[in-house]
Each structure stands twice: as C-alpha cells, then as structure tokens.
C-alpha cells in the first residue's frame, strides 16, 4: 500500500488539510440530508399528534391548540366544543412517560393515549395496550388513582409504578389545568349523559 501512497500524504500540511477536507465534506452532506428530511420529520410529528388527538377524543373532528403542546380544545362538525385534550409527562419507572388524555365536557375521561414511554417490555410497556388504556374510560378525574391508592384504576400486574405514574399524572394534569377546562359549564347536552350513563368496565373479572 505504501508503494502507491504519495510521499506528501504523511506530511504535516496534509495532516491538517485532509482533516479539514473530510470535515467540510461531512458538514455539507449532513446539511443536505437535514434539509431533505426535516419537512418529512415535521410532518410525521404533526400526523402522530393528530392521530393521538383523534384517538383520545373520538367525537371531535377539529382541534385547536390552546397551550402549545399541552392543551387542545376539540370541536365537532357543528363547531360545538365536545371536550379538551391535555398532555402530561409524569415520571415512569425507566424514564419520562408522555400521555394524552381526552376529557369530555362532563369532566369524564374520553380516552388516553401513550405517545412515548421507555418502560420495561412485557411489564410497563403494556400500558400502551387498549386493555390498560380502556380502564380510564368514563372515569372522573377524582377516580384516577390506583385501586390500592383509593381510586378505581386497576394497575398492570408487576407494573405498579408505571400504572401509578399514568393515573396520577393525568389526574394532576387535569387539576393544574382545571381553570382552562370548560368542565360543567352548564351546557352539557342530554345525548352525552346517556352515552356516559353506562360505566364500561371491561377489565373487571
């Protein structure tokens, strides 16, 4: 190999120049890739948020961001507000958990969705499954505690910390944003109450 390598390659000048050239080429190619992928990444984030919003407040067809990345109001086809969505990030077992919770105009949970968590696969990671998320449906904020904490949410077995973080996180999130949530503002329409009069508890044995 050394036979084909020019002498100047091992010199002091080229030592600096070669590193500069490599860094410049790397920087230019990274800038190109960054510019090409950035709009796609942004789009993915927006779509992921929209999917999650629609999941936790199914009756809403349009969302309005009230507090950036924290509070949304949801409106139905007739532009009537049907509920709100809050984002909370409590501390889980292995890192922060990010969750969205939909709250109807009557103050009951219309759905929760876990947008990011780093919990143990097979244990805490089960929090993303509908089996766990459905336990929150139609609960009032006051009920959002684990059964062993005096609430009505059944914890995932062997993942109490994760379950508690989500239940407490959503309850505390609702409490801290209560003044911005139009709950019990008097304008609850009768069909809503009929919908919620049947407490679905699919996980009770």
């Amino acid at each position: 190999m050394s036979a084909t390598t020019p002498q100047w390659v091992q010199g002091r000048f080229w030592m600096v120049a070669s590193l500069v050239i490599v860094c410049l080429v790397a920087a230019f190619s990274l800038a190109r890739v960054y510019n090409a992928t950035r709009p796609v990444i942004e789009q993915q984030r927006i779509e992921a948020t929209n999917r999650a919003l629609a999941e936790v407040l199914p009756r809403a067809t349009r969302f309005e961001e009230q507090v950036p990345d924290t509070l949304w109001y949801g409106f139905d086809g007739a532009d009537e507000q049907v509920g709100s969505v809050i984002k909370v990030s409590p501390r889980g077992y292995a890192g922060p958990i990010e969750a969205l919770a939909g709250i109807g105009q009557d103050g009951r949970i219309t759905g929760i969705y876990i947008t990011s968590l780093k919990e143990t696969p097979g244990l805490g990671l089960k929090a993303t499954e509908p089996r766990f998320r459905d336990r929150f449906l139609n609960r009032t904020p006051e009920e959002l505690r684990l059964v062993q904490d005096g609430g009505s949410i059944d914890a995932i077995s062997a993942a109490t910390i994760t379950s508690r973080a989500i239940a407490d996180g959503i309850r505390e999130g609702i409490e801290s944003l209560r003044h911005r949530l139009p709950i019990g503002a008097g304008k609850s329409d009768p069909p809503d109450e009929l919908d919620f009069s049947d407490p679905a508890r699919p996980d009770q044995p």
Partner: peptide, 12 residues
Amino acid sequence: RRYVPNSIRIPI
C-alpha cells in the same frame, strides 16, 4: 485510504 495520513486515520 491512500490519502489518509497514518497518524490521524482514527479521527478521520
């Protein structure tokens, strides 16, 4: 590889 100085090959 022919233009990479031996002494700084790892950083490159």
